[in-house]
């Protein structure tokens, strides 16, 4: 098997995550889909690391994880406070920008 299949898998997972972001209304699930996309990227980075024979790809993936962790913390905090204010976790309810 050619390791490039990992890249195809990463692309597939990324696309599934993106579609999930678009079709789900629950902010938490949308957030999970974003995490899925990040993980797909990490897989691609790790595969690239193997392809190039150095560890820089893994370093980037490591940083991605750290940033993703920070993002999850802040994002979930936002979801919670929005839920407390509006009693809804639907992203469609936050459409106040529309006239």
């Amino acid at each position: 098997m050619n390791p490039v299949n990992y890249l195809y898998l990463a692309a597939l997972l990324f696309t599934i995550g993106a579609v999930g972001v678009l079709i789900r209304r629950n902010a938490i699930v949308v957030f999970m889909c974003v995490e899925l996309m990040l993980n797909a990227c990490n897989l691609a980075f790790v595969t690239f690391s193997r392809m190039h024979g150095n560890l820089d790809g893994q370093i980037i993936a490591f940083f991605t994880m750290v940033v993703a962790a920070a993002e999850v913390v802040v994002g979930l905090a936002i979801i919670v406070s929005v839920f407390r204010a509006r009693h809804s976790a639907s992203v469609d309810d936050a459409s106040l920008m529309k006239l």
Partner: peptide
């Protein structure tokens, strides 16, 4: 953490 938040928010209409 996700599971905690899911528990906090509970089941909403957004789940449909």
């Amino acid at each position: 953490l996700f599971l905690f938040v899911v528990m906090l928010v509970g089941v909403t209409a957004a789940d449909s």
